[in-house]
Computed example of a mutant assay.
Amino acid sequence: MSRVQIFTDSTNDLSDELRQSYQIEVVPLYVIFDGDSYKDGVSIKPDKLFHLVGQTGKLPKTAAPSPTDFEQAFAPYIAAGDDIVFIGLSSELSSTIQNATIAASQFEEGRVTVIDSRNLSTGIGLLVLKAAQAAGEGKSAKEIRALIEPQTAKIEVEFVIDTLEYLHKGGRCSSVQAFIGSLLKIRPLVKVIKGAMTLTDKVRGKREKALDQLLNNALAQKDLMDEEILFITHAMAAEDAAYLKNQIEQHTNVKRVYITETGCVISSHCGPCTVGIVFAKK
Rank of each mutant, 00 (worst) to 15 (best):
V114G: 05
S140W: 08
I259Y: 13
I180C: 04
T274M: 10
K206L: 07
G263V: 00
I193P: 02
I32T: 08
L49C: 08
V27S: 02
Q247E: 12
G57C: 11
F179K: 13
A237S: 09
A134G: 05
G271V: 00
P65C: 02
L167S: 14
R172F: 11
K142I: 11
L215N: 09
A220H: 08
F7P: 00
C270P: 12
G195S: 07
L183D: 07
F33G: 09
I148M: 05
A210K: 01
S94T: 08
T198V: 13
D9M: 02
C173I: 12
G205D: 09
G271L: 01
K169V: 05
M236Y: 06
D9H: 10
D201Y: 11
N217K: 10
F50P: 02
S105T: 00
F7H: 09
Y22D: 08
Y77T: 13
I277E: 03
L29Y: 09
Y38E: 01
G171R: 01
T56W: 12
M225F: 13
S268C: 02
V192T: 15
K191D: 14
N217G: 00
T68E: 12
L219N: 05
G195L: 15
L147F: 07
A241N: 03
V265F: 03
P67W: 09
Q5V: 08
T8P: 05
L59I: 13
M236I: 11
V31A: 02
S37C: 06
F7S: 02
G136S: 11
K222F: 02
S182F: 06
I124C: 07
Y243G: 14
P188L: 01
A75I: 15
E156K: 09
A218K: 01
H51D: 09
P60S: 12
G125V: 04
C273W: 10
S182D: 11
S174C: 05
D83S: 09
T96H: 02
M225P: 03
I124R: 06
S66F: 04
R3P: 00
N216F: 11
Q250K: 06
I161R: 13
T68A: 10
D16W: 14
M236Q: 15
E165S: 06
N246Y: 01
F7Q: 02
Y258E: 15
E261W: 03
R19H: 13
E156A: 06
G271W: 00
A80W: 00
F74H: 01
K191G: 04
D47F: 12
